[in-house]
């Protein structure tokens, strides 16, 4: 069961990062086309709408991968001085806290997307619905939260094995 979940989590993490990376390249292309077009008085219509909204995908697409690679910055100054149990507990706590934070982000941004639908919110120039990008952000956050939760369980399980 755990192996099955872990395999799926890995696939989803990679897929998120792939989507985020594609978004980043798209972002560069949009701005380049806009800047070049503006030189000839034909800027890309809605370029700012596109680059702002795409950014939500770039930022959250890499979130799960960042956790997998343990890229989130922590203050490691006292790591050596702390006893092993404290370091281990703090790792588990951090993973659980992260899972809760991303679950919270997913939940509240989803709520907020319902408001976006109610208020008919969309970008100013080409009318991209805000809710689409909020949903994307939710999906990435759910994946991140899920991956962190799995990691917390894995650490707890490993600890029990060591004790056994």
């Amino acid at each position: 069961m755990y192996a099955f979940l872990a395999r799926w989590a890995d696939r989803l993490i990679n897929l998120s990062a792939v989507i985020g990376s594609a978004g980043l390249i798209f972002e560069v292309a949009v701005i380049l086309v806009d800047v070049t077009g503006r030189l000839f008085n034909t800027p890309l219509y809605g370029a700012q709408d596109l680059s702002e909204m795409t950014m939500s995908i770039v930022v959250f697409g890499g979130m799960a991968m960042a956790d997998k690679l343990r890229a989130h910055v922590a203050v490691d100054i006292f790591e050596e001085q702390f006893p092993a149990w404290l370091n281990r507990s703090s790792d588990v706590f951090s993973a659980l806290a992260g899972a809760a934070i991303f679950a919270g982000i997913a939940w509240t941004v989803y709520q907020s997307s319902q408001i976006s639908l109610m208020l008919n919110l969309a970008t100013n120039v080409i009318g991209l619905p805000k809710a689409w990008f909020q949903w994307a952000l939710c999906a990435f956050s759910v994946i991140t939260s899920f991956a962190m939760l799995l990691r917390a369980f894995e650490m707890l399980a490993r600890k029990r094995e060591q004790h056994a």
Binding site: L24, E27, V28, I31, Q48, S51, E52, M53, M55, S56, V58, V59, F60, G104, I105, T108, V109, Q111, S112, F133, Q134, L137
Partner: peptide
């Protein structure tokens, strides 16, 4: 809860912060 949603989305779609990934 609502600040969690609005700050997250506002900053991750901020025109000024597009510089960061680029």
């Amino acid at each position: 809860l609502s600040l969690l949603a609005s700050e997250t989305f506002t900053l991750s779609t901020s025109a000024e912060l597009v510089v960061v990934p680029l």
